[in-house]
Amino acid sequence: MKMNERALQLGRTRTPFVHATVVRAQQPTSAHAGDEAILLQDGTIEGFVGGQCAQNSVRKAALGALQSHESVLLRVLPDGDLQFPEAPGATVVVNPCLSGGALEIFLEPQIPAPLVRICGATPIADVLAELCELVGFEVERTVAEATVAEADSPDSPADTTAVVIASHGGPEAEMIRAALDAGVGYIGLVASRVRGASILEGLGLTDAERARVRTPVGLPIGAATSAEIAVSIVAQVIQAIRKGGLAVPPRPVQVAVEALDPVCGMTVTVGPDTPHLTIDDVDYWFCGSGCRTSFAAAKTGS
């Protein structure tokens, strides 16, 4: 599968990843300018941006980029003096396992857009869906009667940023409870102050849960029409993301772990292709095949 096709596939499944591109390479490194790879949250590398020693440095920097949501220009240099053009603002890693050469790799994290689930088939819900898409959010529409069941469905997105209930009736309390149990950080209920308070009172929420539910929903701009109410809701969701720390929840993944190479002392980010040995029921990971071979020889005496 081509790299752009794989990126589109990951985007459709809302899977975070890092797109890595070699922008400069110095021989005798095996990578070349233009080489590409996709790095996943579990440390998997799909593509090629250098040999095993370089991959360890790239993998560690890529996982950091996924956490910070910021692009990184990574310079991977061998141990010792090397004449390699400077790149202001780049992150420099000295990798003693490189056999020579140097790499400069641009790491660009691809984070899914906030996903807003809109419950209901009302004029407010219709306009809200249009506005959410206009500002770059991903939208999922559900009708009130199906929402509770779909919230527990394994096919439903597990990384919902916000849920807005604009059904003007139906199982609103059940929908709020389902969203709270799913860990959604922003839950909005379109209702009057009196009706909204009555629904929440019957749920017996904790203070922390109550803080996640907005009703009346939206910023207080004096909105009266369906379009104005939708504008106030979108503005409040944006405010919660930009100023309130509301994040795009990550999908559950097997997070990469780190280990210490027993030969060279490098910190190795363990991935599916990390060189590995098990001796006397003890696991060892290595930065490259050279360290693994040396360690195995020392242990076996051969």
Rank of each mutant, 00 (worst) to 15 (best):
S99Q: 04
P154Q: 02
G100R: 09
E46A: 13
C287S: 11
A25V: 12
E150K: 12
R59D: 07
P85A: 11
L180T: 10
T160G: 07
E150S: 11
I111F: 07
G169W: 06
R14M: 07
L200F: 08
C119N: 06
F137C: 09
A235C: 04
I238S: 11
Y186C: 12
V253M: 14
G202K: 03
D35K: 02
C132E: 10
L73W: 01
G222L: 00
T44R: 06
P275S: 14
T206Q: 02
P216V: 02
G290W: 10
S156G: 04
P109Q: 13
K2R: 05
G101W: 06
P88V: 07
F137S: 03
R214W: 00
R292I: 01
I238A: 08
S226D: 05
V139L: 09
P123H: 07
A149E: 15
A191P: 03
E133L: 15
S302F: 10
G290S: 12
P28Q: 08
A173G: 13
I241V: 15
L10D: 06
A235H: 00
G290L: 10
A224N: 03
F106A: 12
G271D: 00
A297F: 10
G64T: 06
S71H: 00
E46D: 15
E5F: 11
K299R: 12
V143C: 00
C291R: 07
E145R: 15
R6E: 15
I199M: 12
A162P: 03
G196A: 08
A208T: 14
G288T: 10
P272Q: 13
G290N: 13
R251W: 01
L260A: 13
R242F: 03
P88L: 11
V263M: 05
R177V: 00
P85F: 11
R292F: 01
R117F: 08
V164H: 07
I241G: 03
G80C: 00
I38Q: 08
G196T: 02
G288N: 14
A113I: 01
A208M: 09
S289E: 07
A113V: 10
I241N: 03
G271V: 03
V190K: 04
V234T: 11
G202T: 02
A33K: 14
L205Q: 14
E140G: 06
L63T: 11
L128W: 03
K299D: 00
D42L: 02
M175P: 00
A146C: 09
G290K: 13
V217T: 12
D159E: 06
G120K: 05
W285E: 08
G196K: 03
P275L: 09
T29G: 02
P216A: 01
L200Q: 02
R210C: 00
G288D: 11
V248E: 08
C291A: 05
I187V: 13
Y284P: 09
Q41E: 15
E133Q: 15
Q236F: 10
D261G: 03
P252M: 11
P216E: 02
I45A: 08
G169V: 14
I111K: 13
P252Y: 07
F295Y: 15
A33F: 05
A25S: 01
S226Q: 11
